[in-house]
Every structure is written in structure tokens, then in C-alpha cells.
């Protein structure tokens, strides 16, 4: 596998240079350099408060960085918005909102639909297909507040799929889902990767890291290490990332 510092900008889906993000003068992300090659499944791993979500959001232009540059496929974020698919954490929205699963999936099409126009028959068809891919076809007209946590997560994944992007950002897609759903989700992510799409995932479980992902970025405000899973996942790197607790983490399947 190519070493990250050997990557040319042309091979990259995302190039982050010297990114620093601060809340009230306190740096949340400090001087991040990150070159994400096209067609990989990348995990961003780190303890709570490490800035994982902030990193995703600043790459997508939802947070204004204090310093640094982000390029998506060699262009500005604004120019490449259509090529990005985003699956936020489940808790960021109100699941009592009065609508059904299909309608939420359809929201993923809004970027393609544009202002003022209503979703077309084709948008509906694509959304139903996406629900089917995540095994939720029977739940299309189910109100949101009657979905379980795992079902909500699948709906969010379907919504990211219909964005029909080249680059996906997923914030903790495996949180609160059972083993079967986790398998279904990772199969889909691998399928996307095999279609040479780039998938960036905030992940928590060190045990599954090697099975699920090609590349990993260890993050704790700074980027501790970045590269292929085999190169990066060393006890020393984990110790720096998680402090003294890493030996415990490696032998415990449940990490939150």
C-alpha cells in the first residue's frame, strides 16, 4: 500500500493542509495534514473529544477553520458539494419529526433536485431502492418515531446512499446497532469502496478496525498517526492517542 506522504494530489479525494479549528481560542484540531486517496475505506479513530466530528465537519465546510486548507477532488468544497454524501450522528436530529422513513431518505436527493422543485418519480424510485439496499423496504411509510435506533441508522445510511456521491462521510454509523445491522452496514460500505468511492468513517471499535478498514487516522486534537491499518495500529501509537488506557482498549470489544 502507498505511504500517505507519497500520494500525489491527483490521486486524492481529499487533501487537508495545516487545518486548525478552535472554539473560543481553545484548539480542537491542531495542524492536521491529511491526504485521503480515492477508493479507500478510511477510519478516523480517537477518544471522546478528540475532534473527529469536527474534522469531518470542517472538511465538509460546515465549520470555518481558524487556519488551513481543504481541497475536495482538487477543488474547493463549494464546487464539489454534489460529490459529497454525509451521514451525521443519529442524535443530531429530532426523530419525533412528523414524517416517514421514505421522506427522510428522499432528503438525500434534495441536493440534486435543487431549490423550489419537488422530488420527482425517479427520486422516489431511487429512495425506495436505497431503503431496499439497507433492508428497510418494508418500513418506507413508517413514521420516524416508530423506528428503533438501528432502523433509524439504516434510514440515515440509505439517505447517504441516494446522495449518489463519490466521497462519503459517516459519523459513527455503528453506534447503537446490533451485530446483524453492523455487518449489513459494513458490507454496503465495502461495496461503495469497490465501486471506487471514498468512504471516511468515524469509528470507535479498535477490535474491528483491521477487518473493516484499509486506512486509519488516529486523532487526538493532533493527528497521531496516519496510514494503512497494519502500519498505524501499533501499541505505541494507541498509547499516545488514548493515553495510558490503550492496553485496556485493545482487549475490550466495547469502547464508547
Amino acid at each position: 500500500m502507498v505511504k500517505p506522504d507519497r500520494l500525489t494530489d491527483l490521486e486524492c479525494a481529499v487533501v487537508v493542509q495545516d487545518l486548525t479549528v478552535a472554539y473560543k481560542e481553545k484548539p480542537v484540531l491542531w495542524d492536521i495534514d491529511l491526504k485521503i486517496p480515492k477508493g479507500v475505506l478510511l477510519a478516523i479513530v480517537g477518544p471522546n473529544g478528540a475532534g473527529k466530528t469536527t474534522l469531518l465537519r470542517s472538511i465538509m465546510g460546515m465549520i470555518k477553520p481558524a487556519a488551513g486548507n481543504v481541497a475536495i477532488f482538487g477543488q474547493s468544497i463549494a464546487a464539489k458539494k454534489r460529490s459529497i454524501g454525509y451521514m451525521p450522528q443519529r442524535g443530531t436530529v429530532d426523530w419525533d419529526f412528523p414524517t416517514d422513513a421514505l421522506d427522510v431518505v428522499m432528503m438525500g436527493r434534495y441536493g440534486h433536485i435543487g431549490w423550489f422543485k419537488r422530488p420527482s418519480v425517479n427520486d422516489k424510485k431511487l429512495s425506495l431502492e436505497a431503503l431496499d439496499r439497507v433492508g428497510m423496504a418494508d418500513f418506507a411509510s413508517r413514521p420516524l418515531n416508530q423506528l428503533s435506533g438501528g432502523q433509524q441508522q439504516r434510514v440515515f445510511l440509505a439517505r447517504a446512499l441516494v446522495q449518489d456521491a463519490d466521497l462519503y462521510f459517516m459519523d459513527e454509523p455503528f453506534v447503537g446497532v446490533d451485530a446483524v445491522t453492523e455487518q449489513a452496514i459494513i458490507e454496503l460500505l465495502k461495496e461503495l469502496r469497490n465501486q471506487s468511492k471514498t468512504v471516511v468513517v468515524v469509528h470507535h471499535d479498535l477490535q474491528t478496525l483491521a477487518d473493516y478498514f484499509d486506512w486509519v487516522s488516529l486523532l487526538n486534537v493532533r493527528q497521531i498517526a496516519y496510514g494503512s491499518v497494519a502500519d498505524v495500529l501499533t501499541p505505541e501509537n494507541l498509547k499516545i492517542t488514548y493515553g495510558g488506557r490503550s492496553s485496556f482498549l485493545m482487549h475490550n470489544p466495547v469502547i464508547t
Partner: peptide, 22 residues
């Protein structure tokens, strides 16, 4: 009526709306 879809999206998911450029 004009902003029905946009209002729904920004109300349900502010983050996605921002990312999609609404």
C-alpha cells in the same frame, strides 16, 4: 409552498441542509 421542501429539510436536519447548500 415555495420553500416547503427547504423548510422541511432545514427544520429536520440543519447540518445536511447546510452541506447541500440550502
Amino acid at each position: 409552498s415555495v420553500f416547503y421542501k427547504e423548510l422541511k429539510l432545514t427544520t429536520f436536519d440543519h447540518g445536511l441542509a447546510a452541506m447541500l447548500g440550502f
